[in-house]
Write a protein that binds this DNA or RNA. Structure first.
Lengths: 171, 171
DNA sequence: GCAAATTAATGATTTATTCAAG
DNA sequence: CTTGAATAAATCATTAATTTGC
């Protein structure tokens, strides 16, 4: 009865993590679409899977960071014995400077360099998304994961722009 | 430079409010799509406009309610003079029972009856969405509002199912 | 009256929390 | 316990009301 959840293949996961590490933490819908298209070569995947992955990854990264900071603070406040440093007070309160709502500016792709996510993908993302950053499309996919062409006069072509040759990766 | 915001026409607004009042406070994506299709007869509109409208409307409804409750509490605590009722204490703390995360169950459409949003719409929503409540689609539209057919083998037909005759409403 | 200045509404986004599968 | 999925809350940003000084 319950629909099975999507589970990224190792290769898909690696690409996602790589993109994230390279600075793409908040992809717009166009970028999500491109990523989805690329990753779909390695297994069934939908737009929303990618979308949620970035949402969750960012949130939990942040969570982890907060937790660390909290632990640091506790360490400093609890341990009355030799606070590790007498240098100009890297005080606990400094840690609170962690910015909660940075209103993150659009991440530009030149922050993202060559990656497992193929240079072609980077090129495509740059040329087709960032160059018209104002014209964000909303791109749709059917829930069953079928490739759901979204034709608005001329269809949006995506997959054929990515390398089709095998990468030697096993899923 | 800034893209203009969508503004519901009076008729669109009336339909939205009507649906909301009738109990449809949390439409799923399929329902949003159907509503969008219907409303697009009365003016340019996109999927996300409808989606956001319900999100915001619900949130601000809730906000208003909380505010009222707060004011009630203040009234009771500040005014030492004759608390209006001696009945089994409709105490302020009772108000706090307001459920923050009700994990709202899917609103079923039979809660929604004949409405300004045309019986056809209701029928369609029921037959095409609720009957396969597990198969929520993600439906997409281009950001420019163009009608962006989403063809997955057979195209999704929507508009022609709604009445096209004028309703006598002025936008 | 009537604009410039403030404030209230509300559309659009992002972040935080919660639910639930595995 | 981890993490995909979904909803709620917080925030940003633009437009409409409204106020204010002339």
């Amino acid at each position: 009865m319950p629909r099975p959840r999507w589970k990224p293949t190792p290769h898909q996961l690696m690409i996602l993590q790589d993109l994230y590490k390279k600075g793409l933490t908040n992809p717009n819908s166009c970028q999500v679409q491109m990523i989805t298209a690329n990753l779909s070569m390695y297994g069934k995947i939908q737009w929303k899977n990618v979308f949620y992955w970035f949402q969750n990854h960012k949130a939990r990264d942040r969570q982890k960071m907060r937790k660390q900071i909290f632990q640091q603070m506790q360490k400093y406040t609890n341990a009355d014995e030799n606070p590790p440093s007498p240098s100009p007070s890297p005080s606990p309160s400094a840690a609170v400077n962690y910015q909660l709502y940075p209103n993150s500016p659009t991440i530009f792709l030149h922050q993202v360099e060559a990656t497992d996510a193929s240079p072609q993908m980077m090129k495509y993302l740059w040329e087709n998304c960032m160059m018209r950053t104002n014209g964000r499309d909303w791109i749709l996919m059917k829930d069953d994961g079928s490739s759901a062409h979204c034709s608005n006069n001329r269809p949006i072509r995506t997959l054929e722009l990515f390398p089709v040759a095998t990468t030697g990766f096993k899923d």
